[in-house]
Write a protein that binds this DNA or RNA. Structure first.
Lengths: 128, 128, 128
DNA sequence: AGCGTTCTAGAATATTCGGGG
DNA sequence: TCCCCGAATATTCTAGAACGC
């Protein structure tokens, strides 16, 4: 029922640099949401989740850049610890831009699809 | 009889200096797909796969040009590592043109025939 | 205010070894077309031509890259002498991609807006 | 009678910009 | 630039249509 878009497991290599404020984006409060949902075979034209979500998942998941962005302790949100490095170094690796606001615009676009039933969405400020 | 399952994914490096862009097309996961159907003599009008697919299979298979185009690691897709060389050097060997877009048009045409019952679809990215 | 009249024709030499294919796109026959509209201060929201058209005009105008793309002799069209170099080297300078097909898609999109009253349309072919 | 090649357009997602909470 | 959203343009992928052979 309330689940996130089915996401395929994919891993990419990344790296990063440093500094500044941080922002937290929340996802469903119910435990391990945004996990990979198995896809039934009968869906011929089943498509994966939107590229934006898989890319976002990938960049957050990447352990080599967890000092820039990572899942929160509860696993229900992710935190951008270093927006500058995130914009400058990480975004161009996944998207055709390096604007934090463009990333947020997409996030807001897909939140509505991710929110099922009663999912919360909240933005927190993180501290270095 | 799933020959090939080509699909849409293109990986681009903006700072291309010579030939950095690569394109991935998929095929069915079952091994040995896109084989030529044996034609018994009495079956005069039996036909093999469409010429486009056999040609595509041939060019992807050719080990001497694997630096330009080759099967992906998983064998479920093929990657055009060097679209420029692919268009310029390989397409004319098999087709009456050297336009990448014409090749893609044909790929899209045959996707519908290639899609069978329960094929998986997966996108991989190639790196230079 | 007919800026440009891009159109469809592609001339290809099959035996291309490095960069032999060329493509011609047309513009209106009236001189000085596709100029930037001057913006007076009071017209805060006055807009010039669509970014795509100004960028296209710029790249065609640039005398340092006329061996890759330039106006045709009659000035009514422009020719992409070297599509490979155009895609690889020039497109990324102006756009967020290096795909010739994406450029062509935009051209086709703006054709409808560029066509005015009774503009002539003519296709020329360029030779290396 | 398709099959191939070309040109153009539809559709979906992505990026930018600006306005209203 | 705090956050979210609508809208316009951009980029990608796929398909329609015309034409030739």
């Amino acid at each position: 029922m309330n689940y996130l878009y089915p996401v395929k497991e994919e891993y990419l290599e990344i790296e990063a640099t440093s500094s500044s404020a941080s922002t937290t984006y929340e996802r469903g409060s119910d435990e391990g949401s945004m996990v990979v949902i198995p896809r039934p075979m009968e869906g011929l034209h089943e498509v994966g989740p939107p590229p934006f979500l898989t890319k976002t998942y990938d960049v957050v998941e990447d352990p080599t850049t967890s000092h820039i962005v990572s899942w929160n302790r509860d696993g229900a949100s992710f935190v951008v610890w270093d927006p500058n490095a995130f914009s400058r170094d990480l975004l161009p690796r996944y998207f055709k831009h390096n604007n934090f606001s463009s990333f947020v615009r997409q996030l807001n676009t897909y939140i509505k699809f991710l929110v099922q039933d009663s999912m919360d969405l909240r933005i927190d400020e993180g501290q270095e």
